[in-house]
Design a protein around this nucleic acid. Sequence first.
DNA 1: ACCCTCACCTGCACGC
DNA 2: TGCGTGCAGGTGAGGG
Length: 276
Amino acid sequence: MPELPEVEIVARSLDKLVKGRSVATAVLRRQRLAPDHTQAQFAKKLKGATINFVHRRGKHILIDLDNGRTLITHLRMSGRFMLLNGDHEDPKFAHAVLYFDDGTRLVFDDQRHFGLMKIVDTERLNEANEIAKLAPEPFSEDFSPDYLREAMRSSNRPIKEFLLDQTKVCGLGNIYAAEALFLSGISPRRRGRSVSGSRTELLHRNIRAVLQEAIDAVGSITPDPVFVGEEIYGGGSERGWRVYDREDEPCPTCSSAIRRIRQGARSTYYCPKCQR
DNA sequence: ACCCTCACCTGCACGC
DNA sequence: TGCGTGCAGGTGAGGG
């Protein structure tokens, strides 16, 4: 479900909600959520830890603990966090639960079972496989126009598929890749290496613009503070996209019908007239 | 090194 | 109503 903006808001909300809470007991209900740990190890590594803060790298949520460890979580398609208390039942797919010493609990619920958790030593966080290969953060200086140009120059794939590769550009998913390409007037089928320098610079700006716009939009519709008992909210599909999920609807710029194609077994939406 | 396909799951919207 | 099909905002493994 989430791309960088949704993950960013979930991380910020979690930081406000669970910072300072202490884990009395941790339960891994579905072992394959955390394939690198046994259920006993998972419980032991979290028991007694207090949450220092919650942040994000790419689409990974990082829960920094005071015992020298970090709990890495990837929501994948359907993962979500909920902060519950004794009045609430667990949701249907509660694959992990952190019981805090104040009677509340943080539940990881995941209908499609794609989500992943892993606990690492915080000082080795950047060496973890999940983190080590990620491209620079889109808002960092390392993600420069030059960086993007270099990465695209060696890519023979359609630019849309390139943008989904988290080792090349991190944080974009199927929605924001399509949106950034639309704003930049670049066809999703075009090979990365064939995009001109000026278009690449425009794309670089628009990647940041769509992500920032979405962070602002998702943030504004996410309750603050988020109350106990609700999903820790990362936005929803009620927002309107420019081209994503708008097959046959008029392009916001030229009114041509927006087209949907398959690329790498996923849908891509674009305007065949505005994007060349 | 790159690129492609499939696999991992449940649920929902759609057409017959 | 029910059943089959295709689709869903993600990625890794395993093949060429």
